[in-house]
Design a protein around this nucleic acid. Structure first.
Lengths: 346, 346
DNA sequence: CATGTTTCGTAGAACGTTCTCCATTGTTAG
DNA sequence: CTAACAATGGAGAACGTTCTACGAAACATG
């Protein structure tokens, strides 16, 4: 109907005109600042409603907040992210903050580009999910914009961290399998591309937790780790390597569910029954793990809690907390059909 | 090390000072505008590099572009999105545009809130994935900001659309199953919550395509549609209803893979072998569909092409194309282990 | 009644860009 | 040599907020 180009935005000045007050007064009402009489507030609110006023975020950004929080995703495909994001948005629920997600890719360079882009857009704070960067780079970002890091174990004074306790998670799996009678329990981990994340990465901690738990159970002999990648293909490849070895493991603990799916495929192709000939456990408890045809034993991280915690910490930071916080979320083991006692003698 | 608060941003004025030129000149270089000598360009570029200048998006937004494109996600869990997003980012690759994702939820209200938030942040354009809104609402958004709609079949003058040809997709499945000898092929569709999307939604078109294909094969008698939801639970529930009917279908075509997974669970629980007693086909060809323990026959939409096309159309719009475009992407059928000839007599 | 002290409201300067004019050069045509 | 014109660079006004000063009431205190 209405031809012609975009209608001009309703601004604070329009509202001020309509209400018969100054723009400064409108701004005060908007910000809930001190020095506004109830009468004035009502007048301004009314004018805003009538005109359908919406604050212009870019203009706000020039001086104050943008009320925008960024979440950098290191891998869009990871089926574990939706839970975290849901936790974040739920926590922020009815606050004025908006969440925007940035696909950062798995390269340090592309991730840095994404965080830079978020900073350029004056976001009030950023949540980084499993970033592949050095601690120094993270600290440097933190001097510009408050950040919370999810899934990296190294803590730092400059920013807050939320991690799943991967040592506990790995122990839960090893104990479960050892209780079933397994002695040769192998582990598939993810090979770090860049030198960046190192020993802080979840995969490194899971692998270390696995080794420690094995030793604690007196199974040091049975320790076997193969490093491929946390993908279906990586799990498949890792399992093939492990199953080709002379002393075949009776159980494989994959550091991620996606990899565990690859392990299942390798077992299937090798004609091994699960859990009869081979027990398989994963990590993350992704949605499909619970589906009947798969029924994968896995470690559940409660992404919802992790996301909500990260959001809470970030807002606290933005609103002035100085001291750094490291929040550790305990995982639980969900036992399903892919783990069982090892076969007879072997 | 460097204590004290955030270091002041490097601005265009700093660059101008360093290069010994005016801010206007720097801006021209930045924008690649007319009226800049090669010498000046070099000087300015050098100064920018030395100072590590980064344009401040919010300030840009006050007058020109933000070089930010938004993608509204209607459901973060849909495993089909990563492909689309990858297509979008690949297409935008080395342009100056940045992509930010907004979780819009599945409610019309929350989706509207998200798009409003994107408009408030002066994004240059927005891609809406399967939005649940009326055509009028979409058109109204389009008057403010260029948009491209993915997955809605109704075309409109105000915006561009990219759709999978769901009629073709449904026909591929029905033809495949009919060729195998099935006559009672049931369909599970998604029940629209709001009146908003209506006949434009993919599920509605798939269902209609299914009916049309059935009639075309002379199987009008075998048409059976049950409307639950495109979730694992929805597929399970739908399958239970269908399997309880007196004339049990020999094949179920679920309108989405996630629902097909639920169908598989229902079949498993009912003691039916797949594809022996029941053939199952899905739609979307999500990652896990190809995994051995599932091996689901499904329709592949090539989300990568859809995303890339949407991004291309959006940029064209932003740069001035007036005429509206509807791009239809043809799906393909991927036949796997869950479909086969129906059992003996039945 | 003179003098503080709140409380309420407004002016107006930022913030970092873009972009429309305008001024100054060369350069070319006549 | 001059008029006309293209090419190059700069001044300065937006853009829509926030927020520091500051003034004017209204009120309390002696």
């Amino acid at each position: 109907m209405t031809t012609g180009s975009a209608p001009r935005r309703v601004t604070i000045a329009d509202v001020a005109g309509r209400a018969g007050v100054s723009t400064a007064a409108v701004s005060k009402v908007l910000r809930g600042a001190y020095g506004v009489s109830p009468g004035m507030r009502a007048k301004v609110r009314k004018a805003m409603d009538e005109l359908g006023y919406r604050p212009h975020a870019a203009a706000r950004a020039m001086r104050g907040r943008t009320y925008t929080l960024g979440v950098m995703l290191s891998d869009t495909r990871n089926p574990f992210f939706p839970d975290i994001i849901e936790g974040v948005t739920d926590q922020l629920g009815d606050t004025e903050y908006q969440v925007l997600l940035g696909p950062g890719g798995d390269e340090p360079k592309s991730q840095a580009r994404m965080t830079d882009a978020m900073i350029d857009r004056s976001m009030d704070g950023i949540i980084l999910i499993s970033p592949v960067m050095s601690g120094a780079e993270l600290a440097s970002i933190a001097t510009t914009t408050p950040i919370v890091v999810i899934g990296r174990h190294g803590s730092a004074a400059e920013y807050d961290s939320v991690v799943d306790d991967d040592v506990v998670g790995a122990r839960l799996v090893v104990d479960h399998l050892a209780d079933l009678g397994h002695r040769r329990i192998a582990h598939i981990t993810h090979l770090d591309r860049g030198r960046a994340s190192g020993a802080d990465s979840p995969q490194a901690v899971r692998a270390e937790g696995y080794r420690r738990a094995m030793r604690a159970r007196g199974l040091a002999e049975g320790i076997e780790v193969v490093a491929t990648s946390f993908t279906e293909e990586g799990g498949y490849e890792g399992a093939r390597q492990l199953l080709a070895r002379p002393a075949r493991p009776t159980a494989i603990f994959a550091g991620a569910d996606v990899a565990a799916l690859g392990v299942l495929r390798a077992a299937y192709e090798a004609g091994l029954s699960v859990p009869g000939d081979l027990s398989v456990a994963g990590y993350d408890n992704i949605g499909i793990a619970s589906l009947k045809p798969i029924s994968l034993t896995s470690v559940d991280q409660d992404g919802h809690v992790i996301g909500a915690t990260a959001a809470r910490l970030l807002v606290e930071r933005i609103e002035g907390r100085g001291r750094s916080v490291l929040s550790s979320v305990s995982p639980t083991l969900v036992v399903r059909g892919t783990t069982g006692p090892p076969a007879g003698r072997e």
